[in-house]
Design a protein around this nucleic acid. Structure first.
Length: 131
DNA sequence: TTTCTCACA
DNA sequence: TGTGAGCA
């Protein structure tokens, strides 16, 4: 991990700052953590401390949500990325970048025909997004 | 003053 | 998801 990624992973701001930065409620931010989408650290007082990466993820989650992807779908995307990350440590293979993931998501949407109304992903059950 | 966890007229 | 209670 380079120094740049290291800095982006430093947990530096409290939930109040993240709320302003992401325009999300504390309730939602903690909920996404429960869903395993972000992993803020805790300080001495049990307070959550978020990193720039966490904020980025939160912002991405907002985008996915407005695009009609539900929590199950979003979780798949991040699980997929984490698996790639794990694999990268074992074998020296290529990894899915954020852009790759976004590309995959877009093509999936186009293949299904649109972002509004009754697209299949609205009721995604967690097992067919990349069919 | 801010954040935390828990619970639900 | 919101909101209030009672702590730290």
């Amino acid at each position: 991990m380079g120094e740049k990624e290291l800095r982006r992973s430093l947990s530096v701001f409290p939930i109040g700052t993240v709320m302003k930065l992401t325009d999300l409620t504390a309730r939602k931010i903690r909920y996404y953590e429960e869903q395993g989408l972000i992993h803020p650290e805790r300080n001495e007082g049990n307070r959550r401390m978020y990193s720039l990466n966490d904020v980025d993820v939160l912002l991405e989650i907002k985008d996915y949500l407005t695009e009609g992807v539900n929590m199950a779908g979003i979780k798949r995307l991040y699980e997929l990325k984490e698996h790639e990350k794990a694999d990268r440590l074992k074998a020296t293979q290529h990894v899915l970048t954020d852009d790759d993931v976004r590309r995959i998501l877009r093509s999936e949407f186009q293949a299904v025909g649109g972002l509004d109304g009754d697209n299949p992903y609205q009721n995604f059950d967690g097992s067919h997004i990349f069919r």
